[in-house]
């Protein structure tokens, strides 16, 4: 792509019937940039991700992604009838062997579960397999839709460190959808808030990593206000 951007979205509009979910949305993501996307439930975050993943082409406007995309969802969505290592490498072209899967699983510290059935994994383990499966595709853009949403708080903290390390190592651009403001402030270079179908506000985070929760305390209040937490706590 001439622009050198990994993601370039211009005037993206998505309607379900006569309900407009995304409205003339613009979004740029640079190569290797870590972007967190916040927004109220139903604001269209997953919809945007689906468009970027190529799962929804019934839209107006343009959404271009330079290079390979891969995705991890809130639920791991592993194939229960394929062993863990097969889940990691299936769908890769050209077809690769077990050694590649083992290498990817080692990065998420699950090499010894390579031959397990997905059913036998804990939630956090399954989510790590899902991460390994996304990363083994060497994506230029990694889409994460609330990947830690279903995990307990401790596991989530460990996953933050893991994702940060994997990101630094593989350097994909990342678009992380989350409900957790602190998670966004810990991990992202840039935090976006989606509202009324467009990017309503944007915060660039400069603090070096690894970060502490207190590092962007000023931004935290603003983001929470954008999300309507202060005056409309019950909304």
């Amino acid at each position: 792509m001439a622009s050198g951007l990994t993601v370039e979205v211009r005037g993206l509009t998505k309607k379900f019937g006569d309900r407009t979910v995304l409205h003339e949305l613009d979004l740029d993501i640079a190569p290797g940039e870590f972007v967190a996307l916040l927004g109220r439930s139903g604001s269209g975050k997953s919809t945007l991700l689906k468009v970027l993943a190529g799962l929804d082409t019934d839209v107006n406007g343009s959404a271009t992604v330079d290079g390979k995309v891969s995705v991890a969802f809130q639920q791991p969505r592993l194939l229960p009838w394929r062993r863990v290592w097969r889940n990691v490498v299936l769908g890769l072209h050209p077809v690769v062997g077990r050694d590649v899967a083992i290498k990817a699983l080692t990065e998420v510290r699950l090499a010894d579960h390579a031959d397990a059935w997905p059913r036998t994994l804990s939630g956090g383990e399954a989510q790590r397999v899902s991460l390994a499966r996304a990363l083994v595709r060497e994506p230029n853009l990694l889409l994460l839709d609330e990947p830690f949403g279903a995990l307990d708080a401790l596991t989530r903290l460990a996953m933050h460190r893991l994702v940060e390390a994997l990101w630094q190592q593989h350097e994909p651009a990342v678009l992380l959808v989350t409900h957790d403001v602190d998670e966004a402030l810990l991990l992202a270079d840039r935090v976006l808030v989606l509202d009324e179908g467009r990017i309503a506000s944007e915060y660039v985070l400069g603090h070096p990593r690894p970060r502490e929760l207190s590092d962007h305390i000023d931004v935290r209040a603003k983001v929470l206000a954008d999300l309507g937490v202060t005056e409309r706590a019950s909304a």
Partner: peptide
């Protein structure tokens, strides 16, 4: 449908979806 969606996004071809997702799930 979530599995179809995920494997599509991960680059499975049509026949890979058939043999690794649809048919095993019907087994």
């Amino acid at each position: 449908s979530h599995l179809i969606e995920a494997t599509t996004a991960l680059g499975y071809t049509r026949s890979e979806r058939l043999f690794h997702v649809v048919l095993p799930s019907a087994l």
